[in-house]
């Protein structure tokens, strides 16, 4: 889950919850997209991810519905 990524970790989006897909497509998050965790706030706080050299913030609820394949 995107919400579980550690600071600085990079990964590729492999699955997005059906109901969420359209809502976040507008900011460029889609399956196949590479991203990097920039900031993760504690206690189910929002996350900031970097994709296409742009920082985008997402609420925990959103981040928790995005599956990311993290590179080791």
């Amino acid at each position: 889950m995107l919400s579980e990524m550690e600071f600085g970790e990079e990964g590729k989006v492999i699955e997005i919850d059906e109901g969420l897909r359209k809502r976040i497509a507008g900011v460029g998050i889609r399956v196949g997209k590479k991203l990097r965790m920039a900031t993760r706030q504690p206690i189910k706080g929002p996350v900031v991810i970097e994709l296409d050299r742009v920082n985008t913030s997402l609420g925990f609820g959103f981040a928790n519905k995005i599956v990311v394949d993290v590179k080791e």
Binding site: A25, G26, V27, G28, D52, R53, V54
Partner: peptide, 10 residues
């Protein structure tokens, strides 16, 4: 111009 994909979507 630095965020072309987002622009294209709309």
């Amino acid at each position: 111009s630095t965020k072309i994909e987002r622009g294209l979507y709309l």
